[in-house]
């Protein structure tokens, strides 16, 4: 079960072994994850790619501990997520995982600094201390001067940077990102991915990104390709390749 002390992981942040997940029952039963096994290492960016409906988001949800699986095992930072329930799982997420959502999910009625301080408030940090820390992280992502603004005043790229700050403010060892560039133009996508790279490298974090935006594949250390609920290929990207955005919409 989860404990506050981190078990030894030998550089493996996430270890998924033989995971199966289905939705529905009877004839309408949909087998979404089929015996999926995958590892994500600390300090790397792992991208889960594949066509829509292939199970990327379901696998990401399972790794994040927001969705249970039917069978198989998931160790995250050495903790067996598949055995955790209720409060333990909630506390584990609060402490160890940073979330970046496709639509950012910033609360529109509070300031950027308050949005960023949310994970600290969840962990019981005082509002003033949380806000102070939030402003430091906002500085780090280049949004220090917008801390008083509400998210509605910011561009998509700026909002995503606020979301990144929120995901990092409590210094989680694992960052989960769902389509982080889907709502961004090429320039902002580039800025955001550069940030991810710094995030993964600097603090030895694991960053798992679900995407089907092939403009950003070159930012990954490894790419796991999924199709029809299975991991069909995991390969390391060429470190000599310079990451770049094509300034036109793919597909």
């Amino acid at each position: 079960m989860a404990t506050d002390s981190q078990p030894a992981t030998n550089g493996i942040a996430v270890d998924v072994r033989g995971v199966n997940k289905s939705f529905g029952s009877g004839e309408s039963r949909l087998h979404v994850l089929k015996d999926v096994s995958l590892q994500a290492r600390t300090g790397e960016i792992l991208m889960l790619v594949g066509p829509s409906g292939c199970g990327k988001t379901t696998l990401l949800s399972a790794i994040a501990g927001t969705m249970g699986v039917d069978s198989g095992e998931i160790d995250v930072l050495g903790n067996p997520l598949h055995r955790m329930r209720g409060g333990a799982l909630t506390r584990f997420r609060a402490k160890n995982i940073g979330f970046i959502f496709q639509q950012f999910n910033l609360i529109p009625t509070i300031t950027c600094a308050e949005n960023v301080s949310v994970p600290l408030l969840i962990r019981g940090v005082s509002a003033s201390a949380a806000k102070k820390k939030a402003r430091e992280v906002l500085d780090a992502v280049g949004m220090g001067d917008r801390w008083k603004d509400r998210p509605g005043k910011l561009s998509g790229g700026q909002q995503q940077r606020i979301a990144i700050a929120r995901a990092l403010v409590h210094e989680p060892p694992l960052v989960i990102c769902d389509e982080p560039t889907a709502a961004l133009d090429a320039k902002n996508g580039e800025i955001v991915l550069d940030l991810f790279r710094q995030v993964a490298r600097a603090a030895g974090r694991a960053v798992i990104i679900v995407t089907h935006d092939n403009r950003i594949f070159s930012y990954a250390d490894r790419i796991a390709r999924m199709d029809d609920g299975c991991i069909v290929d995991v390969h390391r990207t060429d470190p000599r390749e310079t990451a770049h955005f094509e300034h036109e919409v793919p597909h």
């Binding site: 994040a64 909630t90 506390r91 609060a94 999910n105 910033l106 609360i107 949310v118 969840i122």
Partner: peptide
């Protein structure tokens, strides 16, 4: 209106009680 925000808080580790 706030369901996605509340859901995000839930995902980020806010307990249902809270």
């Amino acid at each position: 209106d706030n369901l996605m925000h509340l859901g995000a808080l839930k995902a980020m580790g806010t307990s249902s009680f809270r």
